[in-house]
Amino acid sequence: MPVVESEQTTGMYGWRLDTLLDAAPTADVRAAIQEFLTRVYDDLRNPGSAAKDRALDFAATDVFQAAITATEAIATGKALDTIIVEKSPFSRMNSDCWDVKLRFFDPEDGLRPRSVFRFTIDVSDTMPVTLRDIRTWSEAR
């Protein structure tokens, strides 16, 4: 089993799921956020040794912090559909940037557009960083 030893604790922190869930406006949204986070954490398991995996892992923690952004999709009845990681065309010098796209769909209305949230993450350093703001848009099914 891999062991993580870090001399640098910058960017390492703890959070409480209950704090995020308590901020949900309704019980239905609370349940949907909990389901969303459970799915993200279950689907994102990986050894974290490849750059693509590190981008995905960092996005998972960023998703937790930015769950209020995803709450918009969740509050309108959408659920997480796919998580895609691809090399980003947006980068800076000496970087290793990846786009992580979260796509949400409406399980009750297949004709409704998907909501997409994109995180651009640079994993070239010990502590990954999100570049730019989280982007969101709708796309046809």
Rank of each mutant, 00 (worst) to 15 (best):
M1H: 11
P2L: 13
P2M: 11
P2N: 12
V4F: 10
V4G: 06
S6I: 01
E7I: 09
Q8T: 12
T9Q: 14
T10S: 14
M12P: 00
M12E: 10
M12L: 13
M12F: 05
G14N: 12
W15M: 11
W15Q: 12
R16C: 07
L20T: 02
D22K: 12
A23V: 00
A24Q: 01
D28V: 10
V29L: 11
R30D: 02
I33K: 05
Q34E: 15
E35I: 01
L37W: 09
Y41A: 06
D43N: 04
L44W: 09
R45F: 06
N46M: 06
P47W: 10
G48W: 00
A51H: 07
A51Y: 05
K52E: 14
D53W: 04
D53Q: 07
R54Y: 01
R54N: 02
L56K: 03
D57S: 11
D57G: 08
F58H: 07
A60C: 10
A60D: 08
T61L: 12
D62R: 14
F64K: 03
F64Q: 01
F64G: 01
F64A: 04
A66S: 15
I68P: 01
T69G: 08
T69Y: 15
A70P: 00
T71Q: 09
E72D: 07
I74D: 00
A75H: 05
T76H: 14
G77V: 04
K78E: 00
K78C: 01
L80V: 08
D81L: 14
T82K: 12
T82S: 10
I83P: 03
I84D: 15
I84A: 14
V85L: 01
V85E: 07
E86A: 07
K87D: 09
P89N: 09
S91L: 02
M93Q: 13
N94P: 01
S95H: 08
S95P: 07
D96Y: 03
V100K: 04
V100T: 10
L102E: 03
F104K: 04
F104V: 05
F104L: 07
F105H: 11
P107T: 04
P107N: 05
E108L: 06
E108W: 03
E108P: 00
E108K: 00
D109G: 06
L111V: 11
R112S: 15
R114H: 08
V116P: 03
V116I: 09
F117Y: 12
R118P: 00
F119W: 13
F119M: 12
F119A: 05
I121D: 06
I121C: 02
D122E: 08
V123I: 01
S124R: 07
D125F: 05
P128F: 10
V129Q: 00
L131S: 01
R132F: 13
D133A: 08
I134N: 07
R135T: 14
S138T: 13
S138Y: 10
S138H: 13
A140W: 12
A140M: 14
R141M: 05
